[in-house]
Design a protein around this nucleic acid. Structure first.
Length: 245
RNA sequence: CCGUUCCUAAAC
């Protein structure tokens, strides 16, 4: 069954829903027993194609086989609703999690967050982040990246800055790709001071951001006649044994 | 063995 699942996963990743279903039914005829992962893969295959109703049909089918959906199943379906640009439906599926006595995790919250911001509902997204906090679910790299990206595209430097401060207060250390995105965004919006602030925060947390972020920052700082600051950043990198190009 | 953000191949 695990082997079957791995093969199904391969068909799913290549986007071939027909192959997924043909292969699945063929293997069942040969006596393979599907498990929850098997169903989740089929559900995801339909969701990624935008066929939420077919995905829900497969969930009914799995329940008929006395196979209980997991939190991953719900995440997949919520993501499917997100792809179909249907945040209302995403929220409904999310609410089913407690009905089904499943434990919501950071993954489902992130999926719902994605659905909200995809439909332009930044307020809904920020409220959801508050809800996570209340429920004791820690924001992770996906949470921050999703929200920062949405704020920078749909709102402005003020909103991004607000979330940035909140993240720093919690002492959260983001992934480099988020740092690069933020530094670039701040610098492009004449706020190289915030870029520098983020840089110093990362260094203070023992992370030495790599060359790409440094180049962005140094260029922006130099353009704004802050060569001295730029020089200090570079020095920090060199002192850590890196070799900026 | 499966899910959530971003990135990623080939082809044109």
């Amino acid at each position: 069954t695990q082997t079957l699942n791995i093969l199904l996963l391969g068909f799913k990743e290549s986007g071939d829903i027909t192959a997924v279903e043909l292969f699945y039914h063929d293997m069942i005829r040969r006596g393979f027993k599907p498990n929850v992962v098997t169903y989740n893969i089929r559900i995801d295959a339909y969701c990624k194609k935008g066929c939420l109703d077919d995905a829900l049909r497969v969930m009914k089918e799995m329940e008929g086989m006395k196979c209980k959906p997991t939190v991953e199943t719900m995440t997949t379906l919520i993501h499917g609703a997100s792809i179909a640009r249907n945040p209302i439906r995403a929220r409904r599926l999310f609410d089913e999690i407690s009905t089904r006595t499943l434990q919501a995790d950071v993954g489902v919250y992130n999926a719902l967050l994605g659905s909200f911001v995809r439909s332009g509902d930044l307020k809904g997204g920020l409220d959801l982040m508050d809800e996570m906090e209340k429920k004791g679910i820690q924001h992770d790299n996906v949470t921050y990246h999703t929200m920062f990206l949405a704020l920078k595209n749909l709102d402005g430097v003020g909103a991004v800055c607000k979330l940035y401060r909140r993240m720093v207060e919690k002492g959260f250390v983001p992934k480099m790709r988020t740092v690069v995105m933020l530094v670039k965004f701040f610098c492009e919006n004449q706020r190289s001071d915030l870029g520098l602030d983020l840089w110093e925060y990362m260094v203070g947390r023992g992370c030495c951001p790599h060359g790409h972020a440094l180049n962005l920052l140094v260029t922006a700082l130099c353009c704004r006649k802050k060569v001295e600051k730029a020089y200090q950043c570079m020095k920090q990198v060199v002192e850590r044994g890196r070799h900026p190009s």
